[in-house]
């Protein structure tokens, strides 16, 4: 088969028909056009109207800010209390953790100028899209959370853990070129059964919030988690110069490594 045919077949496999997309596009453009006409019309007001409108808008904005702050703070307290996140770190069996920590962090070797030994897409777990890992831990999602001057790119990484034996899983990560270990922080933008662990190494400011950095994270034993917490999302910072790194998972009876990164600085940007 030709390269053209191979590429077409490969992409067609992940391109289901987008039924009705034309209608949705048409509706969005028409709605946007109406919205813009309304805003132009609203702009033609007398100076008095504008003054009162401005004061009213300020008061409304202040009220919204107060409401949102109340909801966020209240929601977090409620969520943490409901899901037991407040007690998660302390609920980790420290003896089990120390045993796992005693295992050396062995990152794959990346020679200068060498190609990053990316883990292959194993397409396991009956998922559509990239799934990395041979098991029992699988990475299926990753997204940027923001960039800081101090640490670089903070990202969230989502895993499935198909546990065969009870027990926690220790997660550590590091740059394959510099051998530098990455700091972890507690992911708080949603429920997660993963906990940042180990001593506090320092703090960083991300999106206006102070976050505490730890040397590692722990995936909780799935059998001990409430269903809502069974998402395993860890959050860690990747230095700006890093292109290739690895996670090491140490759990009951297994050690697994997943290598991931960017192919070049441009695609990372």
């Amino acid at each position: 088969m030709s390269l053209r045919t191979d590429i077409k077949d490969a992409i067609d496999d992940v391109t289901p028909p987008a039924l009705g997309l034309e209608n949705r596009v048409r509706a969005m453009v028409l709605a946007d056009g109406k919205e813009r006409r309304v805003s132009v019309h609203v702009g033609r007001r007398s100076p008095w109207n504008i003054r009162f409108r401005g004061m009213g808008a300020l008061a409304a904005a202040a009220l919204v800010v107060v409401l949102i702050a109340g909801l966020v703070i209240g929601g977090r307290v409620w969520r943490d209390a409901a899901n037991g996140n407040l007690g998660q770190a302390s609920s980790i069996n420290q003896s089990d953790l120390h045993k796992l920590e005693s295992k050396a962090l062995v990152l794959p070797v990346l020679l200068p100028g060498g190609v990053c030994p990316f883990s292959p897409d194993t397409r396991q777990l009956g998922m559509q899209g990239t799934v990395l890992g041979d098991g029992p831990v699988y990475m299926y999602d990753a997204w940027a959370l923001g960039t800081t001057v101090q640490q670089g790119d903070w990202g969230a990484f989502a895993f499935y853990y198909v546990a065969k034996d009870p027990g926690i899983v220790l997660v550590r990560a590091g740059d394959l070129a510099t051998r530098q270990a990455f700091p972890f922080a507690q992911y708080s933008d949603g429920t997660t059964g993963a906990v940042a662990a180990g001593p506090v190494l320092g703090t960083d400011r991300l999106n206006g919030e102070t976050i505490r950095m730890h040397p590692e994270a722990v995936l909780q034993d799935p059998s001990r988690l409430k269903p809502l917490n069974q998402q395993l999302i860890v959050m860690f910072a990747i230095p700006r110069a890093t292109l290739c790194w690895a996670f090491q998972f140490d759990g009951p009876g297994f050690t697994e490594t997943i290598v991931w990164g960017w192919d070049d600085a441009q695609s990372k940007a």
Partner: peptide, 8 residues
């Protein structure tokens, strides 16, 4: 979005 898979 660095990576994503959709669960079925």
């Amino acid at each position: 979005r660095w990576l994503t898979a959709v669960t079925i």
